[in-house]
Design a protein around this nucleic acid. Sequence first.
DNA 1: CAAAACCCTAGTGGAAAACCGGAGTATACT
DNA 2: AGTATACTCCGGTTTTCCACTAGGGTTTTG
Lengths: 150, 150
Amino acid sequence: MPVELSCKSEYALLALLELADVYTSKEPLQIRQISAQQHIPDRYLEQLLATLRRGGIVRSQRGAKGGYLLAREPRKITLLEIVACLEGFDAQAKEQEDAAKFTKTLEGGIIAEVWQEADQAAKTILQNYTLQDLCDRRDARQQLDLMYYI
Amino acid sequence: MPVELSCKSEYALLALLELADVYTSKEPLQIRQISAQQHIPDRYLEQLLATLRRGGIVRSQRGAKGGYLLAREPRKITLLEIVACLEGFDAQAKEQEDAAKFTKTLEGGIIAEVWQEADQAAKTILQNYTLQDLCDRRDARQQLDLMYYI
DNA sequence: CAAAACCCTAGTGGAAAACCGGAGTATACT
DNA sequence: AGTATACTCCGGTTTTCCACTAGGGTTTTG
Ligand code: FES
Ligand code: FES
């Protein structure tokens, strides 16, 4: 119940998985291709990729034959970093003001502490997964499904 | 970033802390008193307490001289139970449909799995805190603040 | 019976999230 | 150089959700 998976993060992860698949080719992937493949509204995905670029997770190449590439190897990109990039900036500010509001009262401060502990636990999980891990896991699953099919 | 603390949960926890304080007296506490003490909109708190009652966390006594009491000792009420009661029912349904939507595609399923793992980690934290723990922690903090003041 | 409390159900307002559109800018290819 | 392509910036719209409000009903006390 407590951990949210926003539409934003989901779209971004799907897009990054696509980029991770073609990472070794060094060829950029275009918004259109990704949005068609993963059924994501292209104009919206554009915004997300721009945010990821500003966050240093993705590189972009402008002009004809342009597109997006991962800025680093999939092994070096954690899920926490991704979601922090997308929701982190304003969310972090939001969190600060929430903490401030709560800490005005003693009880509120205690509650905020416990919630931060829970939050930290969830973050640690996401910290320990990389894009590569997701790819590997998906490939393994696909193999398994194939074997069952036969 | 990922763990939400909704207004609902916050209000409910504050109210339950009040109830926990007077638990031994076996005297019911009224909505008005709680809302005044913790600055919670009374009409809203009413709904939350109703939900907590349906969830078996709180008992109510109707009529004049009525009010609310904890259904069990504070030691036997976990924070997870509280938040699950408040956001759980529709959130759980929501979660199911999300999982179903994601699992339609292979990538979506993988992502959902990871998120559930993170969610589980956060839940475990909340599972291991009871209302009594919060009270104790608050009291300890209060003592400390007092000592610094002197 | 009347007052005090809880009990239900619905509805409102506003903010945030998701999504769309248009004009601008860089790049590649001919 | 010129044109097509694709990213970039920024503003607007739609939709969804949440905190909150409201009104009428039921139970208990005295
Ligand atoms: S019920 Fe909300 S994450 Fe499981
Ligand atoms: S930034 Fe969202 S919980 Fe810490």
